[in-house]
Design a protein around this nucleic acid. Structure first.
Length: 934
RNA sequence: GCCCAGAUGGCGGAAUUGGUAGACGCGCUGGUCUCAAACACCAGUGGAUUUACUUCCAUGCCGGUUCGAUUCCGGCUCUGGGUACCA
């Protein structure tokens, strides 16, 4: 029987579609399970063979869970807003919506061919107004909220206004940009504008002047996770630091909860570690250093209050507000010159340039513990954005301070006994304190505790926890994103669009570039003002400061739309709310999330934050969005090279290339098989090589190879469509899983795919003799039962443990055994079909129907295995004890003669070696005793 | 620099967590089929040693615990990832 995978796959895909077999609804009688993939950004290049890896794994898990009686939600959609479509629009003038729709169509075609069990009726697209309605809604809810540290949750902003009018800021413990202090009386006499500006200091979505990553080439600001080594993640353009007025999300308010939540979720340790580091909790003390002259004081943060006696100077960040407070008139020229040079450095220059620089302010501060006067310096090694933007420098025990002190000849003293600081600082947190007044004789650990207490007792500061996590910058000066539902009133104050007027739809523009005035592209939209009286979008030309007001021109960043999409799938068509309580209470949260590790500090943090906020406002019922998370590894490309002799059109085979002066050239991997080049295909691949000559080894041209990123320019892209055309989707699915552990990154190598393809053919062959169905209802033999029960147990165990590669191996072994046994019994083949259905659903469905079933194999019942069938026929050789009998070796009834002899041998040996001792275990291997455990 | 993960044949990788190391697949070698090739099927395939039975050596390196270590502990060396003047 021929394996006609094309016909089989088309037939059953049509069957599944027609019957909507993958559509799910809430069913209280069945346990739910939610399996989610990270939805793709539909790029113009389409899918390559690496993209579906995670989707295949999650699809297998989905199908497995379904066969085990779960009601599984397994949706898919598109992260449709993004820079590439907009960059393309700038070049071609084509509307990004059009490009995006085209790309989505292509993605869908490719995905459909692989045979996924997605419920497409729940599809979402982030650029769809019915979808971003809820992105805008969530933003407004954040705008209307502040964060209360006391209650550990977000609360309505009206509550805060209320408190201000009754008691001012007294006793407040809330998240804010800047600590403010005022009384109720002071608040009550403030103007509306003043009040609004103060409230902005507390809103969870706020407009603030912050240091941003500005990328001139992209014409937009970027979030911290979108900047890698001082270059933009997209395109690799330089990024500068500058202060801009931007929308921000007060994610820092959730730092502690984001950290604590990690202990409650089942993610890999390495991923949790990345998030922990990104959040960057550090415990320490905030201390006040009064200025030697005047009544000013500097606030600093330190994790080493124990080294207070070793402080010999202070350093301010160049951008710090303290600079103006401390700079001395005599030093002003030098200081300003220094600030200017720092300002002109890009982020990247500041990072790569490790040269020590700084300037003395001319002022002194007083050490609050020793009373000593110490100089105040400015240097760019201190960051404005962390702590208070100022530090106490302890050169003896901090390597950065040490380098600075050496460079500027500042005193360095040791406060830890026996620490050698002649050539470098002693940074370690161990040793006994010395030269440290009240701390002398204590260990560093005890000294930290005592110093903290002293700081609190003497009221020179307070114990403080600092986080590295910064608020997320939420504005982008771009077109292709969600518009902010915000307009600016006559006083220039940002005001929310009423909830019932959402969604605020993205307008068309004539060009996707900033305006002449430097406004973002939305500045070009003629209908982009707000008619407050009528509650709708109006024409910019009509703005009269009475009823028609300008709308916000920025758009939201990529992570806005991806932060809550998993909730929308639960109730994708609801026009009245993000998700109904009914749907949310049933599906709750994602049980298994499959996706790339590269989102660890971006999407996966934002989503958790967004989810916790929605939880706080009681829009949803779970505090964490993703219970379990698996990171599939990346599939890299495996490039092939040919070696061209310099200046000639002659190519040398790999192992002979060292005899010549050659240049390696990437060659299309699709014309190379097992590293052997197809010479004719090579000649016709590129006209330049039409007359190419070759120097062969053993009559073959062997190519070199390297593992690189899969990309067009390296000619190493393998398209899933081509694989499906040649081998079928089931083979592709099986092979992608067989490649290696799901979490590991590995290169794609098409060699080897025949290996798994063969086993699908072999499986099909079990059902037929020639072209005739040969299925029988005979009683299976013990060997057959053992083979198939072993498989049921193994595949079940492996899927639960996400070990898909070993599942495939187990399947192959079983098929081989059954082939050898010429097994054609229904009782054997039926469970085989069911357990392979998650991996190769098309062939399984075909065989399921061949066996005479009317229903879909997707609705089958996962078979149970029988331990009795798995009993080993070899010597199990248990040793038992009961007082007098020192040991006995038990042999199963069905042991062969050889095995019996072997057991006797073991018995004899054991008797000799034991000599009265009690053995714990005897390990017997064929023909010899390996070990006796005493 | 700091944090995390990993290192097993020619290659991808197994080893149900302390008990026959190298499952399964690729590749390679030999054979069957074929005029021939491809496909398919059968056999072999870590290294050394031996005619053979056998024996010895092998899980990055050095040491330790154990009757027994790829697995546990200590110290190195590489490789990959995260982060980076975070005070």
């Amino acid at each position: 029987m021929e394996y006609n995978f094309r016909a089989i796959e088309q037939k059953w895909q049509a069957y599944w579609n027609a019957r909507k077999i993958y559509h799910v609804t809430e069913n209280p009688n069945k346990p739910k399970y939610y399996v989610l993939d990270m939805f793709p950004y539909p790029s113009g290049a389409g899918l390559h063979v690496g993209h579906p890896l995670g989707y295949i794994a999650s699809d297998i898990y989905t199908r497995y869970k379904r066969l085990n009686g779960f009601n599984v939600l397994h949706p898919m959609g598109y992260d449709a807003y993004g820079l590439p479509a907009e960059q393309y629009a700038i070049q071609t003038g084509q509307h990004p919506a059009l490009t995006t729709a085209q790309n989505i169509r292509r993605y869908r075609e490719q995905l459909d061919k692989i045979g996924f069990s997605f419920d497409w009726e729940r599809e979402v697209r982030t650029c769809d107004p019915n979808y971003y309605h809820w992105t805008q809604w969530a933003f407004l809810r954040m705008f209307n909220s502040y964060y209360c540290y006391q209650a550990q949750q977000a609360r309505p902003i009206e509550e805060l206004e209320n408190v201000f009018s009754l008691q001012g800021t007294r006793g407040m413990n809330v998240a804010c940009t800047e600590e403010l202090a005022f009384t109720a009386e002071e608040w009550n006499v403030k103007t509306e504008t003043e009040k609004q500006n103060i409230l902005m200091n507390y809103r969870l979505a706020y407009l603030g002047d912050t240091m941003v990553n500005w990328c001139p080439a992209l014409g937009t600001v970027l979030a911290n996770d979108e900047v890698i080594n001082g270059l933009s993640e997209r395109g690799g353009y330089p990024v500068e630091q500058k202060i801009m007025r931007q929308w921000c999300l007060r994610i820092s308010a959730y730092a502690q909860r984001l950290l604590d939540g990690l202990d409650k979720i089942d993610w890999t340790e390495s991923l949790k570690e990345i998030q922990r580091n990104w959040i960057g909790r550090s415990e320490g003390a905030e201390m006040q250093f009064p200025l030697a002259t005047g009544n000013g004081k500097l606030l600093i943060f330190t994790t080493r209050p124990d080294t207070i006696y070793g402080v010999t100077f202070m350093v301010l960040a160049p951008e710090s507000d303290y600079v103006q407070l401390t700079v001395n008139d005599i030093r002003r020229t030098e200081v300003e010159a220094y600030l200017e040079t720092v300002k002109n450095k890009t982020e990247r220059e500041r990072m790569t340039d490790k040269k020590i620089s700084g300037v003395f302010t001319g002022s002194y501060a007083v050490n609050p513990v020793t009373g000593q006067e110490i100089p105040i310096w400015i240097s760019d090694y201190v960051l404005a954005g962390y702590g208070t933007g100022a530090i106490m420098a302890v050169p003896g025990h901090d390597s950065r301070d040490y380098a600075f002190a050496k460079h500027f000849n500042l005193p360095i003293i040791s406060v830890i006994e026996g620490a050698d600081i002649s050539t470098e600082s002693f940074d370690a947190k161990d040793g006994i304190m010395a030269n440290s007044g009240i701390l002398n004789g204590l260990t560093v650990k005890d000294a930290i505790a005592k110093a903290k207490k002293h700081v609190e007792d003497e009221k020179i500061g307070r114990i403080k926890v600092n986080y590295r996590l910064r608020d997320a910058i939420f504005s982008r000066q771009r077109y292709w994103g969600e518009p902010f539902p915000i307009y600016y009133d006559a006083d220039g104050l940002p005001r929310p669009i009423p909830f019932d007027k959402l969604p605020l739809e993205l307008p068309d523009v004539d060009k996707y570039l900033p305006t002449e005035a430097g406004d973002p592209p939305l500045g070009r939209a003629s209908h982009w003002a707000w008619n407050r009286a009528e509650g709708k979008v109006a024409d910019v030309a009509e703005i009269d400061n009475q009823t028609i007001f300008p709308l916000e021109l920025n758009t939201m960043p990529g992570f806005a739309g991806s932060s809550a999409y998993y909730l929308r799938y639960m109730d994708a068509h609801n026009t009245g709310e993000l998700v109904s309580p009914k749907a949310n209470n049933y599906w709750r949260s994602v049980d298994l999330y499959m996706g790339g590790k590269e989102h660890a500090t971006g999407h996966l943090i934002y989503s958790r934050f967004w989810n916790k906020f929605l939880f706080d406002i009681e829009a949803i019922c779970e505090d964490e969005p993703f219970k379990k998370l698996i990171n599939q590894g990346m599939i890299q490309g495996r490039s092939n090279f040919v070696y061209r002799i310099n200046g000639e059109n002659t190519f040398v085979s790999l192992n002979l290339k060292d005899n010549y002066e050659t240049t390696p050239l990437n060659v299309d991997v699709n014309i190379v098989s097992n590293d052997i080049l197809d010479l004719d295909a090579f000649r016709s691949w590129n006209p330049e090589y039409r007359n190419a000559e070759f120097i062969l080894e053993n009559g073959k041209y062997i190519c070199g190879y390297a593992v690189e990123k899969m990309s067009k320019s390296k000619y190493n892209v393998v398209n899933p469509d081509d694989m499906i055309e040649k081998y079928g989707a089931d083979t592709l699915r099986l092979y992608e899983m067989f490649l290696g552990p799901i979490e590991q990154s590995k290169p794609w190598d098409t060699n080897g795919i025949d290996g798994v393809h063969r086993f699908l053919k072999k499986m099909l062959a079990l059902f037929y003799t020639g072209d005739h169905l040969s299925l029988t209802t005979d009683e299976p033999s013990a060997a057959e039962l053992k083979s198939v029960h072993k498989l049921i147990k193994k595949i079940g165990y492996d899927i639960e443990h996400f070990s898909f590669n070993t599942s495939v191996s187990a399947f192959m072994i079983c098929v081989n055994e059954l082939t050898a046994l010429k097994s054609n019994k229904r009782a054997i083949l039926e469970p085989l079909v069911i357990v392979i259905a998650p991996f190769a659903p098309h062939l399984a469905e075909e065989l399921w129907h061949v066996m005479g079933n009317d229903s879909s194999v997707c609705d089958a019942q996962w078979p149970t295995f029988n331990e009795a069938c798995l009993a080993e026929a070899t010597v199990t050789c248990a040793v038992s004890f009961n007082g007098k009998t020192r040991f006995a070796i038990e042999i199963p009834a069905n042991a062969t003669t050889a095995e019996t002899e072997q057991a006797a041998l073991a018995h004899e040996q054991a008797a000799k070696w034991l000599d009265g001792k009690t053995p714990r275990k005897i390990i017997v291997v064929p023909n010899k005793i390996v070990n006796i455990v005493i």
